[in-house]
């Protein structure tokens, strides 16, 4: 099968969905013909679809999402880009109070088919305003879906599902994944939300990880394989809805859980996963649950500082060894 990058996979998903449905349009800062997106995901799309459907906006995050909400409830399928995940804070009213709540408040009258693409995560030394992982914020808002693709294949299939769906989706990308290549079929496919993917099968311990951490978990699994430990890596692919069944089934098999995420530990993604397993599968656990996450700090700038806070494969190996 051909290999393309995560960035190309996202672009293909956008291009195919825009060709498929004239209601799909893109808006965001510098996504158009002059720049093609800060991470070049939308590069070339304005040339094909025109400036109306690949719409450069002023630097007005709250209005980008507000305008997208207004378009979504009146028949369009906007895909908004927020240049950095941290900047969703500027749009939080429109995301959390409007996009997420309109359908419910209006008794089911509104549909909000809105996708908000944004890159989270650190590792590129751009400090605290451009590096945080905030997936858990959005998991905490009923009415939103949260997608966390870790591979080009998942990125394309999930983005197409997000665009075709009828709910607001926070589509979390990761800056370090844009160049990562992987197998992506030429033919049309979608990945339904709420279906986890077992990225590696194993017997001794379940590692649940998302985005960049999936790759680090896979590296940890390779390291431990040499030491005779068999690691299963479960990638939920969407955090809302969350495929609890896949996580619990894996824990039933392995009897051990290490939850890994790049967000900070307190009230974060790993907290939710650990709580679900503790609540629904504690009888299958042979060891305490371990969590690998960031310490509760903003993301620092200097490379040694940043590398210290972002979980790596060594931290995952260490956590696994503590419960094996």
């Amino acid at each position: 099968m051909r290999k393309i990058s995560y960035r190309e996979a996202l672009r293909e998903a956008l291009r195919e969905e825009m060709r498929r449905n004239p209601a799909v349009f893109l808006l965001g800062e510098d996504i158009g013909r002059y720049w093609g997106g800060a991470f070049k995901v939308t590069d070339g799309l304005a040339e094909e679809f025109g400036d109306d459907r690949v719409r450069d906006t002023p630097i007005s995050e709250n209005a980008i999402i507000g305008v997208a909400v207004g378009a979504a409830i009146t028949g369009m399928r906007p895909v908004a880009e927020i240049m950095f995940g941290d900047l969703t804070a500027l749009a939080m009213d429109q995301i959390a109070n409007q996009a997420a709540k309109l359908r419910y408040m209006f008794g089911g009258q509104a549909k909000v088919p809105l996708v908000i693409r944004t890159p989270f995560g650190g590792g590129v030394n751009i400090a605290a305003h451009h590096s945080q992982s905030l997936e858990a914020w959005f998991m905490h808002v009923p009415g939103l879906y949260v997608a966390v693709p870790s591979t080009p294949y998942d990125a394309k299939g999930l983005l197409k599902a997000a665009i075709r769906g009828n709910n607001p989706v926070i589509f979390c990308e990761h800056k370090l994944l844009y160049h990562v290549e992987g197998e992506v079929p030429e033919e049309d496919y979608i990945i339904p939300f709420g279906v986890a993917d077992i990225k590696r099968e194993g017997e001794d311990v379940t590692v649940v990880a998302t985005l960049c951490m999936v790759h680090k978990a896979l590296k940890a699994a390779e390291i431990l394989e040499a030491e005779g430990v068999s690691v299963e890596v479960v990638d939920p692919r969407t955090l809302t809805p969350l495929d609890k069944k896949a996580i619990i089934n894996s824990v039933k098999k392995t009897g051990r859980l290490v939850a890994v995420s790049e967000d900070c530990k307190t009230a974060g993604v790993t907290a939710e996963i650990a709580a679900i397993v503790a609540e629904e599968a504690i009888d299958y656990l042979d060891a305490p649950i371990k969590r690998v996450a960031e310490p509760d700090t903003p993301i620092p700038f200097s490379p040694p500082l940043e590398q210290y806070v972002i979980p790596n494969e060594k931290a995952i190996v260490k956590a696994i060894k503590e419960i094996i």
Binding site: F25, D52, R53, N62, A63, I65, G66, V67, A68, V69, G70, A71, A72, I73, T74, G75, M76, P78, D93, Q94, N97, Q98, L102, M105, F106, Q109, A110
Partner: peptide, 22 residues
């Protein structure tokens, strides 16, 4: 619809107008 976050309806109205234009 009515939103009770003061001013929140302004960009939503602009979005509905963008939808009309498209």
């Amino acid at each position: 619809g009515a939103t009770a976050v003061v001013g929140a309806g302004i960009p939503i109205a602009a979005g509905a107008a963008l939808s009309i234009k498209l």
